[in-house]
Nucleic acid binder design. Structure first.
Lengths: 336, 336
DNA sequence: GTGAAAGCGCTAACAG
DNA sequence: CTGTTAGCGCTTTCAC
């Protein structure tokens, strides 16, 4: 006795195409996935059937069978930040060209354990995660998932697998050195409260101390950073700006806010206040005055991370060179 | 003769958990999906086994069986634009809370046929797409996919299914009316070249004509818009700014660029040049001068689109009220 | 409340 | 070059 269909036929499947073309389902599969193993005549017949029926292969079923989902998961704190928006865009573009779709997960600046679990349930072929310090559970899940993992935007003593990042403390120190070389001896830093911004702040303040410089303020502001926070922080700082001061901001948005408020208050930039941002957003180059900032190549990071994953997905073994420090550089403009 | 395993056991599966807990696989499935249909004692044993083995259910397999992928696809032009970044963030947050993952596809400002095909192959349970005019093929694929679809950010004479958008021509006309009411009779508009920005431009210029106003310039700039384009366009316009003029920009980035360049050139805003942007980015409120813009509630659109999809995914039938025009409003600030 | 059987739509593996 | 067979890991369905 035939078993009744579980539900009404809802979409065309490979057997329908096979029947229409007079071939076996496997042959249809080959036409789609390995066309050079099919005779041209057969391929033409099958393609005609595919077009006629409007067949869209079910990649979920294919993935279950082949154990390759052709999806890659990405966890970033936010895309409201131009840095990560550019990174995600480049990462997504590179992977789609190779036939992979991206599942995007936005973590805020908090814990990512639940998200990692939800994503791994979809059996992605690879995963990108922002940051390099994870909870024990998260790290274990990632390791046991047996898929290539790229950590970005930070460096780790013990990377899970691959890494495309940089040392945020070094960035802070580099900016301090840059200011010091220009003769500054009085400093301030506005920083968001997330771990990486705080690492830059620490690198900056420690270098200032080494140079024997004076640190007049180092407020920690809520993440994510806003222009308004930068303006407010500068208003607070203004009474102390009687002498020439060099200011590092943990984001170009803060820097823009500080520069804007300085103009409103009549504080000359860069004469009385030198400002350096972070991120090299369009704003930093397009503002008047264009301002100095740290460039970190978000898009390049995304492309590199995608390339690393693709190489491993193509079968390459893990290698030492899968851990790179992306270069950062100070882009000097008119605010310093 | 036993058939050899296709490949080495790579991850824990439901049968492993079942064996460890001394129950049938189906019972494990129930503990995960419908816990109230399992006795508390059994549930405890199964949960212990899950935790001990680190079991992460394979949602691909579950999806194939249940014909529900618990994924939703989203196609937006870009996330480099704060408008869409906020929209995607809100959409993603709302869906994740309901247990859905989002597959994000960035279309640029071009054709989306290939992307729709790639996404539908993953059998998403629902789909969000930006814009309301699609190629015949795209429209047909979306219709035949038999899933709820939301079109956003535009209105359509014949929506595919649900809609959360607004009429871009009306926005342009509203800004023209706003300027006219303030006594302006000389106008200009800077517009990006994408279809929706052009619709706003047309709405603006047609309204200007109706009022008998003078249109002194209406350049079309490349999409996506940048601050620098706004500055350059204002430099071109400057020679004609001998009399008071009202300028609409198709993006806050263009408006910021225009205002910045006006300051550099010594053109007083709003006295000689009134400027209205579009998007209500943080920049518009936080700049000095804060500038007038059109607010369109990107995040609200994302949330509404998610709510529409979720309602249908929960079984609600299609309804008239699934087509809403999101309100826009002119936020008046110091530039007009 | 729990279990056994069947199969979701596709592809790996092998045979011809 | 093409076809057959046997699952991929889960859930639906139905029986107990």
């Amino acid at each position: 006795m035939p078993i009744p269909a579980r539900s009404t036929r809802v979409s065309v499947k490979i057997t329908d195409v096979a029947a229409a073309a007079g071939v076996a389902p496997m042959t249809v599969s080959r036409v789609i996935n390995t066309p050079d193993r099919v005779s041209p005549e057969t391929a033409i017949r099958v393609k005609a059937a595919i077009a006629k029926l409007g067949y869209v292969p079910n990649l979920i079923a294919g993935g279950l069978s082949s154990r390759r989902s052709r999806m890659v998961a990405a966890i970033v704190p936010t895309i409201a930040h131009p840095m990560f928006a550019g990174l995600v865009q480049a990462f997504t573009d590179a992977l789609r060209q190779a036939g992979y779709e991206v599942m995007l997960s936005l973590s805020g600046y908090g814990d990512d354990e639940a998200q990692v679990r939800a994503l791994l349930g979809r059996r992605p072929d690879g995963l990108l995660i922002t940051g390099a310090s994870h909870s024990k559970v998260t790290a274990q899940m990632l390791t046991e998932a047996q898929i290539p993992v790229v950590e970005i935007w930070d460096v780790a003593a013990q990377p899970i697998d691959m890494l495309v990042g940089f040392d945020h403390g070094e960035v802070g120190a580099a900016v301090a050195t840059f200011f010091h070389a220009k003769g500054h001896d009085r400093f301030a830093v506005f920083s968001a409260g997330d771990s990486r911004a705080l690492a830059r702040r620490r690198g900056f303040t420690e270098a200032v101390r080494r140079f024997g410089g004076e640190l007049i303020a180092d407020p920690v502001l809520p993440a994510p950073s806003t222009i308004m926070e930068g303006r407010a922080a500068l208003r607070d700082l203004a009474p102390k700006l009687d002498r020439r001061t060099a200011l590092l901001c943990s984001s170009d948005l803060l820097a823009f806010g500080a520069i804007t408020e300085a103009r409103v208050l009549g504080i000359a930039v860069p004469e009385r206040l030198a400002v350096c941002g972070f991120g090299n957003f369009e704003l930093s180059a397009a503002n008047d005055p264009a301002f100095t900032t740290v460039n970190v190549e978000g898009a390049e990071t995304g492309r590199t991370a995608a390339a690393f994953l693709l190489r491993r997905l193509a079968g390459a073994p893990p290698a030492k060179q899968d851990r790179v420090h992306v270069p950062f550089r100070i882009v000097e403009r008119d605010s310093t």
